[in-house]
Design a protein around this nucleic acid. Structure first.
Length: 352
DNA sequence: AATGCGGGGTG
DNA sequence: CACCCAGCATT
């Protein structure tokens, strides 16, 4: 079977939905945004959960709710504090977009109740719009995330090769919408994702306890693990040299201006390339403080940090650069660095 | 269709 | 090391 046949699943929609939702009612995980649910909790959790696993989000969510208990509090908060509370969670534009949304929402005469309305906010795409509208307002809009793609590909034994998740999303959206329980869209959507997260996992799916196994064509005809078929991309290697410059009790950090498309408002240990210098800075291997490797999307980055003593001429140039900032050691805790930079900075500070 | 964005978990 | 995760915006 090349492309699977969704018709039998669509015909069995009623039984499928009943089985799925009964299972969810009984086996759903206890999650903080599910107890005493509110629109605010739903919106915050959906932003945090974009491309981020539940277990990672949990501690951030709890802290966030204490710092910003509702839209009004978030709307009034300083951008820097908002970013600080997001520190380590990654994808920082989510924090800025969530903050912006809060400010816009408290000014709106009427809160949108349909997915289409939520789509208008920056940082909300098809998935998040459907999730918020269905969970908070019972809008009959189906979510399609990585879990749903995996489940639908397996249910229909669909061997279509996809170049990426976006292509798969386009392919499965009509089916997801066709089998949505429009009477109970919020729970239905969450049940699909819960199934994908806890039973219909990428590796070793727990088919024997699956509530919809009898609807699954991949169990009958092949291995569920074989679906969906996603092409993989080659990883690229990159090296970055960074410099650790301490001067008069302060550390030099690099921060792009707020208008920058990337890394806006986020401090980092300066890459060598960000240091203005007439002649190329020569970094001495004796001054290597730290060397780490990390992955970002499909990149493998080797980062080295070198100690550097700035000359008077270099200091002068540094002080003219709007993207370079001296941050007093005691103040370092207060600025927002990405997760790895935070760890490196703390480790290097301790060493002095 | 491809790429950048972060960080952590898992096999 | 590779892939994946309650994705989105931009090109």
């Amino acid at each position: 079977m090349q492309h699977g046949n969704p018709n039998s699943l669509i015909e069995a929609k009623a039984r499928f939905c009943t089985a799925l939702e009964s299972w969810y009612a009984k086996h759903q995980r206890k999650l903080p945004w599910r107890s005493k649910p509110s629109l605010y909790k739903t919106v915050v959790s959906e932003f945090m959960l974009q491309q981020t696993q539940v277990s990672t989000v949990l501690p951030y969510f709890e802290r966030w709710l204490k710092a910003f208990p509702n839209f009004e509090a978030l709307a009034k908060a300083d951008e820097a504090l908002v970013l600080k509370r997001w520190e380590g969670l990654g994808y920082y534009s989510r924090a800025r977009n969530l903050h912006k949304l809060a400010k816009e929402l408290v000014q709106l005469p009427k809160t949108p109740q349909k997915a289409e309305g939520w789509l208008a906010f920056r940082g909300i795409g098809p998935y998040t719009a459907a999730a918020i509208a269905s969970i908070a307002f019972s809008d009959a809009s189906a979510v399609v995330d990585g879990n749903v793609i995996r489940i639908l590909a397996r249910l229909t034994a669909d061997a279509t090769p996809f170049s990426d998740n976006t292509a798969a999303l386009k392919h499965f959206s009509p089916l997801a919408q066709a089998i949505l329980d429009e009477k109970n869209p919020g729970d239905h959507n969450q049940a699909m994702m819960e199934l994908g997260a806890t039973l219909c996992t990428k590796h070793k799916p727990l088919c024997t306890v699956c509530p919809v196994m009898q609807h699954c064509q991949s169990v009958k005809h092949g291995k569920p693990e074989n679906f969906p078929k996603l092409k993989r991309k080659a990883t690229v290697k990159r090296t970055v040299e960074r410099v650790w410059i301490a001067h008069e009790g302060a550390i030099l950090l690099h921060k792009k201006t707020a208008k920058a498309k990337r890394l806006a408002d986020l401090f980092e240990i300066p890459p060598q390339s960000a240091i203005p210098s007439k002649q190329a800075l020569t970094l001495n291997s004796d001054d290597l403080l730290l060397k780490k490797s990390r992955g970002i999307s499909n990149e493998r980055i080797e980062e080295s940090i070198y100690a550097l003593k700035p000359s008077a001429a270099l200091l002068k140039k540094i002080n003219q650069d709007p993207e370079l900032h001296w941050v007093l050691k005691e103040e370092l805790e207060r600025v927002t660095l990405s997760g790895p930079h935070r760890k490196w900075a703390n480790a290097l500070l301790k060493r002095n």
